[in-house]
Amino acid sequence: MATIVVEVMLKPEILDPQGQAVASALPRLGFTFAQSVRQGKRFEITVAGDPTPAQLAEVEKAAETLLSNPVIETFVVKVEK
């Protein structure tokens, strides 16, 4: 069994008010390290056995059509064991 992970982030030029809200909450708790914060989504997809190249290609397609909106977001697909 392996896990295919799809991480989706807003494109850098798209305003991320949620990330900004997190960034401004951090110093209130004494965390002063953050210059900025961007918030994204992570999908964990479980498949039986090692993912085949065909499966990965399908996941790429799903990420492009459903899991992300290419107008405002980018994604990366990776495999975790």
Partner: peptide
């Protein structure tokens, strides 16, 4: 309509949340 690509662009979180 934006998600369907019948219209361009996207609607995102209001700037003040």
């Amino acid at each position: 309509l934006c998600e369907s690509h019948l219209l361009p662009g996207a609607l995102t979180r209001n700037s003040d949340l």
